Computed example of a mutant assay.
Amino acid sequence: MRSVADLEFFITLCKVDSLAQAGRDLDISSAAVSKRLSGIENALGCQLISRDSRSMSLTADGHVFLEYAYSIINSFDKMTAEIGRKKNTPEGVIRINAPFGFGRKHMAQFISKFVEEYPKIEFKLYLSDHPLSLTANSFDLGVRFGELADSGLHARKVASHKRVVCATPGYLKKYGTPKHPNDLKDHSCIMHNQNEEIYSAWRFENNNEYFNIRIKGNLVSNDGGTVLGWALNGHGIAIRAEWDVYSYIKDGTLIRIMEDFSLPNADIYILYPYNNKNLPLRIRIFIDYLIKEMQAMPFLD
């Protein structure tokens, strides 16, 4: 046995009275029919059909083989129909890896809203303080920010986003408002230890002029929410993504400073280990939904 096609061939053969008739139905010669049947029998090591020039009949092994052939073809047809149905009906599991802060604040809400419309799609959201390998951990999607490493995965940019420098009005009133990156040397800066790297040097750009500033401060955390909390408590100056501080800046709880100097972008990307041609429907629909939701997120500019 070599393929499902051999089973279909055998079933067709059993519906007629002779090899010649089978050849006419299959549009091949009777010699080709005989050769293919012999190939199947040789592979199985038994005779399936007794035949002569005028007639043929199933052997005992042939009856067993025919019964299983029908069963296998029926199962194969059901499998094909089920896969086809799933290709046209969004259902199944989506496994996602996202950063803690963004995952808690936004991804959880995006998913909550999405499952109301697509209740047959299941989600497994894994939050981490550093990006996890999608392939090694069997994730369908990963949320990433800023410049992407060359992982060989497919990536889709879902929204442009920025990082901003901010502090409370109380801190700035007490210690002054820095106007230039060099002024940060005289301030307490809250550092974010991200992806096992402490960002003790902040990079700025203005009119193609770049500034790498070594900062200082007595507060460091690998959790963005903790960094934000310390900034809100007036302990110093912090760099945060727009999505994290938008509401605080809009209501005046935090003040955005040094707006003329840009930081490395925090553009939002979705990564996935599928090629676009074979992207499952449930994932394609969810990515399109994320793009719509993320592009509607409030920006400061």
Rank of each mutant, 00 (worst) to 15 (best):
V4D: 09
D6Q: 02
L7N: 00
F10M: 04
T12F: 12
L26W: 04
D27V: 15
A32M: 12
S34K: 09
L37P: 00
R51D: 07
D52C: 11
G62W: 04
V64E: 11
V64K: 07
K87L: 08
T89P: 00
P90D: 03
G92R: 04
I94M: 08
Y118R: 01
K124T: 14
Y126M: 12
D129V: 03
T135I: 15
L141G: 06
G142P: 05
L148R: 09
K157G: 15
V158P: 02
C166K: 00
T168Q: 02
K173N: 13
P178C: 05
K179M: 11
H180P: 07
E196S: 11
E197F: 05
N207Y: 07
N208S: 13
Y210A: 12
G217F: 00
N222Y: 08
N233V: 00
I237L: 04
S247H: 11
G252N: 03
T253S: 09
L254Q: 03
E259W: 02
F261I: 05
L263W: 00
P264S: 14
A266I: 10
A266P: 07
I268M: 14
Y269M: 01
I270H: 03
L271T: 04
Y272E: 08
N278F: 15
L279Q: 06
L281P: 00
R284Y: 04
F286Y: 11
I291S: 10
A296E: 13
